[in-house]
Design a protein around this nucleic acid. Structure first.
Lengths: 251, 251
DNA sequence: GCTAAAAAGCGTAGCTCATACGCAGTTACC
DNA sequence: GGTAACTGCGTATGAGCTACGCTTTTTAGC
């Protein structure tokens, strides 16, 4: 009858479209609660701490009770990957595409930074969850006034997403590594490089080391990381701008 | 005496610098063999199939024997992440930075495509393995003739790496998803989107769907993926070029 | 050669996980 | 009241990592 017939069960779950049971014991748990609890555990202790047992404990239920609402742990992870997103940001009313995408990108970054485990969830299909699609739509909106073809817009957004996801994954993992072994990120790194890098074999790297690029107390300094990201992001946007200019209509 | 005193045990292992034992039973296994066997398993059956038991079996040894050579599974993964790399490519002799980085990037991509599990290995510190540093050096070499500051070169290379890693991780995961559920990548995706996307709520996405961007038999078509990557990569390079031009010396 | 130290190989066992299965308790409809 | 549908949960299985300690092998030093 409704749309759910045509959609895989998993996606129906994402959209909250499964039919509500009319008989039987009332559920003490909902998919939403389970998902939220799992997200809370992941936020607090990392994705590694998310086990079915742990989530059930958080909810005061038994492990197996969860399986009545969620097919498997993988399915739970997918639900988390949609539920962890907030609503996408409003774009500046009269801004150009660059302004819009800048706002958008920093919102993505901020959201994912709140959930550092996000980028570790395997993405085994194109996006279908409501939040994911809403974000996708918003990015495309930023490019709407642009003379790009529709598939080019998709390409630009996908490239951007790839970049942001890569960035988040990298910094999240490095931050985790930093927590358990801070020395590796300080001057100890520069020292180790000086021991190990033979300037004859790796002259370019040798010059960088000599220039003192790595002689910081903490390579993961927040400002440093943000600045690096902004640098890369601007390169990408400049590239889009150049492409638009080449296309003849640099709006 | 030697350098190994100053380096963490793990890194010494990477560089093959641990002292060879003079007494005792001769090792039937070497770290290299273990690492290679683990890589072979990961290449053939994915990172999920790499367990200490599986690798030991591959080598005709018992599970626990591996622990004499490798501290933990995590340590083994780190060894794999260096050993899986080939030597970096020769750069075109008289090419400019863009040519050099293009060759470099496609080599990275080709290498990582041979080991799709690569991007799933957690990176918990800055690169220190010999191969990783060699690749790093090679990318910096491509930028050597450029007027960029040393830290800017590092920024450009890191941004590029982030992008490539993100790309490889995404396509590897999607390819895995495709294998177990091919329908989700064909026209079924466009169909599901049409059911779920309300054009009033997501107009930009609606236009993309209407334009037929997703009406392909396989969104993961190799040529399509490569073309998308090349598109994003060129955007990034254009950005670097624009930055150089702004700096006044567009070599 | 002999002995003892050093090092490798391995069996056992403990722990955590995901999850299949089946039963018991609960509720809405007939 | 009966029954079908549905939830919650206990048990059990199998896989995985790895601490620990015993056995086996090899070599340095006498």
């Amino acid at each position: 009858m409704t749309e759910e017939d045509r959609l895989p069960a998993e996606i129906a779950l994402l959209w909250g479209l499964r039919e509500t049971p009319r008989r039987g014991r009332k559920p003490a748990l909902t998919v939403g609660e389970i998902t939220r609890a799992a997200i809370a555990v992941a936020d607090a202790e990392g994705l590694g701490a998310v086990s079915m047992a742990r989530v059930a404990q958080e909810l005061g239920n038994s492990t197996m009770a969860l399986y009545r609402h969620v097919d498997s742990k993988d399915a739970l992870l997918k639900l988390m990957a949609d539920a962890a997103l907030d609503d996408p940001p409003e774009l500046p009313a009269h801004g150009d595409w660059r302004e819009g995408l800048t706002v958008w990108t920093h919102s993505v970054l901020a959201t994912l930074r709140k959930h550092p485990w996000y980028a570790r969830i395997p993405m085994d299909g194109p996006p279908l969850g409501p939040r994911n699609l809403a974000w996708f739509d918003r990015a495309l909106t930023a490019l709407a006034a642009t003379p790009l073809r529709e598939d080019e817009k998709v390409g630009v957004v996908m490239g951007l997403l790839t970049f942001v996801h890569g960035e988040v994954r990298l910094t999240a993992e490095l931050a985790a590594g930093f927590q358990e072994n801070p020395e590796a990120f300080g001057r100890a790194y520069a020292r180790a490089l000086r021991l190990v890098v033979d300037p004859r074999r790796m002259p370019a790297l040798g010059r960088v080391v000599d220039a003192g690029v790595f002689d910081l107390d903490n390579l993961l300094d927040d400002q440093e990381v943000d600045a690096d990201f902004a640098f890369g992001l601007n390169l990408y946007f400049d590239g889009v701008a150049a492409y638009l200019a080449r296309r003849g209509d640099p709006r």
